[in-house]
Structure formats: C-alpha cells, structure tokens
Nucleic acid binder design. Structure first.
Length: 212
DNA sequence: GTGAATGTTAACAG
DNA sequence: CCTGTTAACATTCA
C-alpha cells in the first residue's frame, strides 16, 4: 500500500466498523481488514514480514496478513453505523427495514451480509441463531417478527460477549452450538456446508425452528 | 504431512 | 450484463 501520503501526519482517531479497522488521518483514512488470518499488534513484532505498519515517534502498530488501503471516499459516505452490531448507533429498527428487501433469502445468508449486520461472522451467526431458536435455513420473510427481534438481540448480545471474552481471556468461551457435537441444552447438533459460501453451519434440529 | 479455520474479492464460466 | 462458482491470499493449530 502506498503510504507516502501519511508521512508526518498525525493519527487523529482509530475507529471500527464491523470487521473494518480504520486509522483516521487529517488527509484520509486507512482501512485495515484482518480477513481470516490477520493480526494487528501494538509495539510488538512477529518474525514474518509486516503487511502494514504505522511508526510513530513512540511506538508502532503492525499488521500481519492484513489488507490495508486508503479509503476512496469519506467515512460518512462509506459507513452507516446503524448496522454495526457493536456500535452505539446500532439501530434494530433500521436493520428490520433493510431485512424486508431480503425476505426471500435464508436467514443464514442474510446474517452474514455485511451491509445488514456489519461485524457478524460465522461463529456469531451460528450462536445467535441457536440462542434465538431459529433454523439457519429459514426463509427470512417467514420468520415471525418477535423471533426476528429476538435474533437481533442475540446477535448484539453474543458479539458483545465474544468481544469481552477475547479481550479478557484472549479466547472465546465454550460455544453453545458452533463446532459442537451436542448443543448447550444437550440436543444433537447437525452440521451442514452451505452451497455458495462453503461455510459450515451448526444447528440443533430440536431447538431451532425451520420457517419456510 | 494434512486439513481446516473468526473472510473477502478477483477472475472466470455460462 | 447478471449470477454463480472457484481460486487466491498465507497462518496456525490439531
């Protein structure tokens, strides 16, 4: 990534939007995405080459196996914080209006759509659906409103929990359904590989209702 | 050594 | 042109 434009500029702010990590400078913003294997370390280095770094008078930020690029437009233009599941501006009502346009898709696909639920990944998808009692292959438009409300609540609650666990212990606690043989309630877990994304979904036939 | 894993996107096929 | 599929990226752990 060309970094000349940052040289000598002051880092004003660090923001996040879903899985995007944003370093804000007066003359532009750098977006860093960790993908599957990425790491960002502060005042620490690994042996392998950094794919991104910021060096300050005191201290440095190092990115490994990350994609970094300068944003082509302003933050306001690119990011709507009403759909960022960990942001204070997260707006369930707004998300629900967006959901109406996705009525025909499965809820598993919709949950991973970063333009609806920015920040949801495969673990949170599986865990939130289990907690909400919704089968991942349910058709979004067929799910009762109360269940959708519950799901949105669980998405936020689980991502907050996940974040706290990673922050304190560095590891997620035991999952309720993800990569489990038996779910938290003791019921048998089924695993399926989604056709398009090839990602694995885990669910309990017993506890998660299929709406179709 | 093998395979799979918290993700996204470019390239390609039809 | 639109939709869907595959490959690529490159690391760590079991």
């Amino acid at each position: 990534m060309p970094t000349k434009w940052i040289n000598g500029k002051k880092l004003i702010d660090i923001k996040t939007w879903g899985k995007h990590l944003l370093f804000v400078f007066a003359n532009g913003t750098v977006r860093v995405h960790l993908g599957l294997f990425g790491d960002v370390l502060v005042n620490e280095r690994k042996k392998v080459n950094r794919s991104f770094f910021l060096e300050f008078a005191k201290g440095e930020i190092n990115g490994y196996v990350v994609r970094a690029e300068k944003l082509k437009s302003s933050l306001e233009e690119l990011y709507d914080w009403r759909i960022d599941i960990l942001h204070e501006e997260f707006d369930p009502a707004h998300v629900k209006t967006l959901l109406k346009k996705q009525a025909g898709k499965t809820i598993a696909d919709v949950l991973m759509d970063q333009q609806l639920f920015s920040g949801v990944g495969n673990i949170i998808r599986n865990e939130a659906l289990y907690r909400a009692g919704i089968h991942p292959l349910s058709i979004t438009g067929k799910i009762p409103a109360a269940k959708i409300n519950r799901l949105i609540k669980e998405v936020v609650a689980h991502s907050q929990l996940f974040y706290q666990q990673l922050k304190t212990t560095g590891n997620p606690e035991e999952f309720g359904v993800y990569q489990q043989e038996y779910a938290a309630d003791g019921s048998q877990v089924t695993m399926k590989i989604l056709p398009k994304s090839k990602r694995k979904i885990f669910f309990s036939e017993h506890r998660q209702q299929l709406y179709q």
